Simulated assay, not measured.
Amino acid sequence: MKTLKLLLALCLICSTSLVMSQVRPGFKIGLNNANISNTTLDTKSGIYVGAFVDIPISEYYTLQPELLYSNQGGKSNSDQFGDVNINYISIGLPNKFYMGPDSGFHFILGLGLDINFENNFVNLTNFNGDDEISPVDVSVFGGIGYEFDFGLILEARYKQGTISVDFFGEDDLYEEAGSNLNGVFQIGAAYKFKI
């Protein structure tokens, strides 16, 4: 029994060190084209920037945890309200599926938690004095990308929020009934370091 436990521990250590030797950190930057559904707001441009860790699991699949700053919201077309700027810290868990073992082309599917750390809409409060924008959002995203051998990655994604932004008490912003969900098209570049 001790021999079996020792053998299992040795296998675990070897596999962990093999995976960790292939882990590569990186950074990414890109443009957001953001919108909030069921509002009178137009699409707004912003940026995203952050870091990630590339963890290859197999020749066809890589897990890529990431931490990003993402500027989202909407552009106002009314004199009463200015643009809505929402700054999120995004914790994402992209799954990258490669077309082949030597192919740079890949598909991306993932989940994210967006934490609203700053927005310009909290200055407008409803009659109870409550903040106007939801503090968190849970997002799902998908996209495509291409990874070059020297570490450069080009990607395009669409990220869909699942928790309503909720502009409480500001009926003039609502275009129609329904949830006010973040929708963001992202295009950008990343670089993966060799360690």
Rank of each mutant, 00 (worst) to 15 (best):
T39G: 10
D42G: 15
T40W: 06
F27S: 09
K28A: 13
L31G: 14
A34M: 03
N35Q: 14
L41D: 05
T43E: 09
N33V: 08
F27L: 15
T43R: 13
I29R: 05
D54P: 02
P25S: 13
N35C: 06
A34N: 04
T40N: 14
V49Y: 12
I47Y: 14
F27P: 01
A51M: 13
P56H: 09
S45E: 09
D42W: 08
Y48K: 02
G46N: 02
L41Y: 15
G50Q: 04
V49P: 03
Y48P: 00
F27D: 07
L31Y: 14
G30L: 01
L41G: 03
N38K: 04
N32P: 00
G46T: 01
N33G: 10
G50L: 02
T39A: 11
K44G: 03
N33P: 01
K44H: 10
G46S: 03
S45K: 12
T40E: 12
I55R: 04
G26D: 11
L31I: 14
L31D: 07
V53M: 13
G50P: 00
D42N: 14
N38A: 06
D42I: 05
L41Q: 07
V53S: 12
V49H: 06
G46C: 02
L31A: 14
F52P: 00
R24L: 14
N32K: 03
I36R: 04
T40D: 10
I47W: 09
N33C: 07
A34E: 04
S37K: 11
Y48S: 01
G26E: 11
L41K: 04
S37Q: 12
D54V: 03
F27A: 15
D42E: 12
G30S: 08
I36M: 11
T40K: 15
V49K: 09
V49F: 15
N35H: 15
N38P: 00
T39F: 05
I55H: 07
T40C: 06
G26C: 10
T40P: 02
F52I: 01
Y48I: 00
S45D: 10
S45H: 11
R24D: 09
F52R: 01
N38I: 00
V49A: 15
T43P: 02
P25W: 13
I36G: 03
N32D: 12
N32S: 13
L41P: 01
P56K: 09
D42F: 07
T43W: 06
N33T: 10
G46L: 01
V53P: 02
F52M: 03
N33H: 11
G46H: 02
K44M: 12
L31T: 11
G26F: 11
T40H: 08
F27H: 06
